[in-house]
Amino acid sequence: MDRRKSLQTLILGGAAAGTGLVFNSCRTENAETIDEAIIAGSDKYFGRTPEELERIEKINAEQLFNEHEMETIASLAIVILPPKEPHGGPIEAGVPDLVEFMGKDIPEMAPTLLGGLMWLDHKSNTEFGTEFKSATLEQKKQICDEICWHDIEIPLEKQPLEIQFFYMMRGLTVTGYYTSEVGIAELGYKGNSPNVWDGVPQDVLDQHGVAYDPAWIAKCVDQSQRNVIAEWDENGNLLT
């Protein structure tokens, strides 16, 4: 599952499961069938059904934002989440492309995104005489400061378009970044990895009035035996 699928799952609450896997003869760009790509465990197609692949290809063939709008999205994303060394920021994470994809994948988002981009340029032209992407960082921040908070007493859908737009863009930017390779690298997330376990902490053992048998604890947490597969005798006694 790639980060776009992860983000869609977060937004929609998960796709429906239980549909049967229907293989077909659609060809990928490498001339392999979709089912062959899945079976082969291709990094690009791993975990996707043929139906999902067809939908992704269809979405990628469409265009929602023009070049100017994509540049504006990139400019706003950098204001929302400034780049950090050494990993970079929203641009390196591909956030603009993700926003484009999600706007097409979830059509209900498109009017808010398109309307919000128009609002940004109108506001920037009115206040500073230039489009948003060409404004200075301080000018961009000044515009964003007016729309970055919403009244929690009023449902978001009843608030002004620009408020809804910024709320949506902030969520897409932050979630898109931290589900990307560079965002995960910034977090320092290493996934599941082995570590050294010394048993239940002594204060917890004392709290419950229990203690380890020294002979057993030596067997159970001996790190030199990490790769030794445990064996038991017929009576359930640990041998290794």
Rank of each mutant, 00 (worst) to 15 (best):
A185R: 06
R3L: 11
E157L: 09
V99K: 00
T175S: 12
E36S: 11
T173V: 04
D97Y: 07
G191L: 03
I147T: 04
E52I: 05
V221C: 11
A215E: 12
E127N: 09
C148R: 14
T130D: 09
S224Y: 09
G171W: 08
M109S: 08
I78V: 14
P96Y: 04
G47L: 08
N60A: 11
D198V: 06
S25D: 15
C26W: 08
K123H: 11
G171Y: 10
K5A: 15
G94R: 00
N235S: 13
A40R: 12
D35G: 08
C220Q: 11
A77H: 01
G116F: 05
I143A: 00
I152R: 11
P160T: 01
V228E: 13
C148W: 10
G191W: 01
W149Y: 15
W197N: 14
I91D: 00
R226F: 09
I78T: 14
G47N: 05
T240Q: 12
E52N: 02
A31W: 07
M102I: 15
S193L: 14
D213I: 06
N30S: 12
I59Q: 05
S193Y: 12
E100I: 03
G236L: 03
M169N: 03
V182Q: 01
S134Y: 10
E57S: 13
N60S: 09
V221Y: 15
V200W: 07
K158V: 05
D121Q: 00
Y189I: 10
F46A: 13
K140D: 01
A93N: 00
A135M: 07
A16F: 10
V182R: 01
A74Q: 13
V174N: 03
N192I: 15
S193N: 12
I39G: 06
T28P: 04
I11M: 08
A15N: 08
I147Y: 00
M168V: 10
A218K: 14
G103P: 00
I152C: 07
H208W: 14
S180T: 01
E153W: 08
N60F: 13
L114N: 06
I163R: 10
K58W: 10
G209F: 06
L12M: 15
E67R: 15
D97E: 11
P201M: 03
T112S: 09
G41L: 04
